[in-house]
Design a protein around this nucleic acid. Structure first.
Lengths: 331, 331
DNA sequence: CTGAAAGCGCTTACAG
DNA sequence: CTGAAAGCGCTTACAG
């Protein structure tokens, strides 16, 4: 076990007080250039790294931000999504000299993020994929602790970063109708206790209503099997499927191909997310590219603004999506 | 900003000293049951959560472990792999009441994990995917700080958890030869500065040598494009491909299918990892299922043993793999 | 048995 | 301008 070097040892070697070392290393102009040079050299020689605990206790801030991962994220969607989010978060946190804590909110502990915040392990949290009216979420927002939500929330007190799911869903549905001439559309929904699921359904409805085409809706749960199940017993002949995510689109695609249905010639399929899956299938899946990493970057920048008191008023930032048309819609 | 409750406030409300509160909450028998009950109630009412910084400073341990993520993990492989690792790590850390820190070792900072350890932000680290003879890695191991490696290392001082890549690669190669009658094999290697790449190549060589079949080797970099490139200009007619990971197998598969080559009828393909991709292609890819999450669980349990002084001697734990034969090899 | 001090490592407000 | 104390919140070793 390598010994840890304290500020006192650096001070002793240079022949100054710990306070001087602290100031020298933080670039306080009160310390002469000569002293600073000596302190810096001694610190380097000894391999001094400030204790995060000592610093955190004194400064009254942890020097870390936390990403709250809901326990419901065990499938591939979750994996890819959270790595995009984690990547974006990590980049911004590094830029702010902050550590990243990943906190799993397992059912038992319940309010994992409250503990993270109250123990001051983290100065703020990024929360994502919360269900609408999740009591933990509303409590968190009400508590006023620094928190930024990735996604859309009805809570007007929330600070959040998201996309316009209604418009995105409407747009890609209209693409099937207007560009590819679909007249019998099926929507496989996401989880309808999440705002994204609700909004993507709403966008679909708007598009089919405006165009006056036939439509059906099957409720899914974002998993690949639920997408497969949704097309097992089609309620009606269908020439286009709008899936609320790519995983379900993969499931639907697989079933159709196995059944000898030509995609996109007989049935066109579009998905949502573009976190990695949609490029792997044959045909590749046309989808709404959700900028997860950028959402995380913006959310984390916002979080630091909240922590530093720069940002106060609740606000929602909306990021643009891209539409990535591949083979599965006929493009 | 919700105010933070300190142990002093709990003590004040109950009319005891902070020391008594600390002992009561930790279940110290010195405190009477009656007092403990009062303390617990007051703590609950006030919403007291111990400060992690205060506790860390006093106890001289952070109450956190860190996962070091190399910067080279930007592709999907990395995403899926690290989420498996992170999932396993998080479960074990939660069981030990420890936080999880994710630390990106960006090129600039270089020895990110040393800083994490020296600043005492974490009590130990899990490191993965390090290159053979990575100087940072050898320095870390030599430093004696608590660290467990996921993967195989030549460093005899390292504590590590891995699989037998040589045998796994040999076994799946022999499967192509013995079960499916392949006689002209191609190996697309992983990065050969990583032990896994070296070992998987070695296993392939052993199998083809023992069986006396023709073979060729193309060096890849674990990315899907490099798998595609490997089969663009085949050096020789090939009836079986052993790819050092699934991403490259996907790339190779895609090129062959686009060229009208039947898989598995004309060319059989197998991969490595089974982190999620291999089930998405058509045909699905036969592969070696690497138990990434379990490796992480075992590694993290070992890490806590090292931190607690229970585990001292360097050791390597080897976990079994599964062989998941799907459509791409003809099974 | 119990009360209260000491001290973990740091930084900044204060005294000189 | 500079030296050195105070104190962040906690836990345990010590004094009584």
């Amino acid at each position: 076990m390598a010994k840890r070097v304290t500020i006192a040892e650096v001070a002793h070697r240079v022949g100054v007080t710990p306070a001087t070392v602290s100031m020298a290393l933080s670039g306080n102009t009160r310390i002469s250039a000569a002293t600073r040079a000596k302190v810096e050299q001694a610190a380097a020689e000894l391999g001094y790294v400030p204790s995060s605990a000592g610093r955190a206790l004194r400064r009254q801030q942890a020097g870390a931000v936390a990403l709250i991962v809901p326990n419901t994220s065990d499938h591939t969607f979750g994996h890819l999504y959270f790595m995009h989010v984690l990547t974006g978060l990590a980049k911004v946190a590094a830029r702010h000299g902050s550590q990243v804590i990943v906190s799993t909110s397992d059912g038992a502990t319940g309010t994992a993020y409250e503990r993270v915040l109250q123990s001051r392990s983290a100065d703020g949290v990024i929360v994502t994929s919360a269900a609408v009216d999740d009591p933990n979420m509303t409590a968190l927002i009400a508590s006023g602790l620094p928190a930024v939500l990735i996604g859309n929330s009805r809570d007007t007190a929330a600070i959040s970063v998201g996309i316009d799911d209604v418009t995105a869903s409407e747009t890609i549905t209209r693409h099937l109708i207007d560009v590819h001439g679909c007249r019998h559309l099926l929507h496989v929904t996401g989880t309808l206790d999440h705002q994204a699921g609700i909004d993507r359904l709403e966008g679909f409805r708007r598009a089919v209503r405006a165009a006056g085409v036939e439509s059906a809706v099957v409720e899914g749960d974002l998993s690949e099997p639920s997408g497969a199940a949704a097309v097992q017993h089609l309620p009606t002949p269908v020439d286009g499927i709008v899936s609320a995510n790519d995983d379900m689109a993969v499931g639907a695609l697989r079933v159709l191909l196995a059944r000898g249905v030509a995609v996109p010639d007989q049935v066109r399929i579009v998905g949502f997310d573009d976190f990695g899956l949609s490029r792997l299938t044959t045909p590749m899946i046309s989808t709404v590219t959700v900028p997860a990493e950028e959402m995380a970057r913006v959310a984390t920048e916002t979080l630091f603004a909240v922590i530093n008191g720069t940002h106060r008023s609740p606000a929602h930032t909306e990021l643009p999506v891209r539409y990535t048309y591949r083979r599965s819609c006929g493009c």
